[in-house]
């Protein structure tokens, strides 16, 4: 099974720009299915990013973040080949993580 996480991290000058896309339904708990029943909330609560083992960014999300969440941020330092780890946890306790290299 392919990872739920896609990351593009590019180092430019002294800054690394990170874009991430995560496959997740982000069900808010307010939407009904075709049978008229509420779909229970199911959303990522936290997404964390580490650069060479050091945390650089923490996202705390509620269910108002869109389906298949997208995130862009940047940090100082980081060069091509450095490791970047992205991990998430959702409200049902499910998790996934991906380690990638900065381009």
């Amino acid at each position: 099974m392919a990872s739920s996480i896609r990351v593009r991290a590019t180092s430019r000058g002294d800054t690394t720009e990170v874009q991430a896309l995560v496959q997740h339904p982000m069900d808010s708990g307010f939407v009904k299915n075709a049978r008229g029943e509420l779909i229970p909330p199911h959303f990522i609560q936290r997404l964390a990013i580490e650069h060479d083992g050091k945390p650089v960014f923490v996202a705390d999300w509620g269910p108002a973040v869109s389906k298949d969440p997208y995130l862009k941020f940047a940090f100082k330092g980081g060069k091509a080949g450095d490791e970047l780890k992205v991990s998430w946890t959702d409200n049902k306790g499910a998790t996934d993580q991906l380690t990638t290299k900065i381009q």
Binding site: A2, R6, R8, Q19, A20, L21, Q23, D68, Y70, K72
Partner: peptide
Amino acid sequence: EEFPPYEFALDLGKE
């Protein structure tokens, strides 16, 4: 388009 939502479909299609 910076990170398009069809990205996951593309990967699945290739597979």
